[in-house]
């Protein structure tokens, strides 16, 4: 063994977790997760291929059969695609957490004197950063297939914030799911269970008015629809505030319910 200067172990006093300390912990974990993304670019590539396929599928295969009053289908469609992309990407939060649980690194983190919320917040913020990248890419793809922002720069920018904020709130749902199921393979599937009805029984791809009456009631009020409608109004014009406040309420509700649920689950996992 090489001779090294070793300080004798000392009883280190616990440093209280102030908000500033917590932010540092969150940043450390977020950085770690982003390094992982950067070093496994194939994951990022695959997570962008799927949304591009959806764009092509709806734009060129189904689109011709879907009638959207007041706008071209491609302009109608992309609000739905943006929201869907960030939501499906959020399923990675569940998978990533379940992988960390299985690998034992969550045990290490939990035995450290770090903020209890940092592993989850760091994870969700890293996924938010990834979503920014994927969303930017989707805007380019959308423009390529004929989509245009018809409502000016500021509302369009706000639309992107709305998409990301809603996706961020949902990544806490996925964080909770990941910790409940604990197996990465199961987490992948379990993440999609709440997503499917929310994304497809919504105004994302088809006008709600084309659905049977019993489904319309659900499709009109559920969070994905109101978010898509807000994004659509912001990018294409139309009544913005009616949808925006509903979207804000839903996003707030999801955070208020799932942040404490997920953190409690993390503490007692």
């Amino acid at each position: 063994m090489t001779a090294t200067v070793t300080t004798a172990p000392a009883l280190r006093r616990a440093r209280p977790i102030t908000p500033l300390v917590a932010v540092g912990d969150i940043a450390a974990i977020a950085r770690r997760n982003l390094l992982r993304v950067a070093r496994t670019p194939q994951l990022l590539v695959f997570s962008t291929i799927q949304p591009v396929m959806f764009v092509l599928l709806f734009r060129y295969v189904f689109g011709g059969a879907i009638h959207t009053p007041g706008s071209t289908y491609v302009d109608y469609l992309m609000a739905g695609i943006f929201v869907q992309t960030t939501l499906f990407g959020g399923a990675q939060t569940a998978v990533g957490l379940a992988e960390d649980l299985r690998g034992g690194i969550v045990d290490r983190f939990r035995s450290l004197p770090m903020a209890r919320s940092a592993v989850l917040a760091g994870r969700t913020f890293a996924d938010l950063a990834r979503n920014v990248f994927v969303l930017a890419l989707m805007v380019i793809v959308a423009t390529g297939v004929g989509f245009r922002f018809h409502n000016g720069a500021v509302p369009s920018f706000v639309a992107m914030i709305v998409v990301l904020a809603f996706g961020y709130a949902f990544s806490w749902v996925f964080a909770y799911i990941g910790m409940v199921v604990k197996e990465p393979e199961t987490a992948q599937v379990a993440g999609f269970i709440p997503l499917f009805p929310l994304v497809f029984a919504s105004s994302a791809f088809v006008p709600v008015a084309s659905m049977p009456g019993w489904l319309q009631g659900f499709a009109r009020v559920q969070p994905v629809s109101v978010t898509v409608n807000a994004v659509r109004a912001l990018t294409q014009g139309g009544p913005i505030y009616h949808w925006l406040w509903q979207m804000i309420v839903w996003t707030g509700l999801i955070l208020v319910v799932f942040v404490p649920l997920a953190v409690a689950r993390y503490r007692r996992i």
Partner: peptide, 15 residues
């Protein structure tokens, strides 16, 4: 909270 700064954990799972 006071215990965590003074312990180290390592094991068979190489976390």
């Amino acid at each position: 909270d006071a215990v965590r700064p003074i312990i180290g954990l390592a094991g068979q799972y190489a976390a």
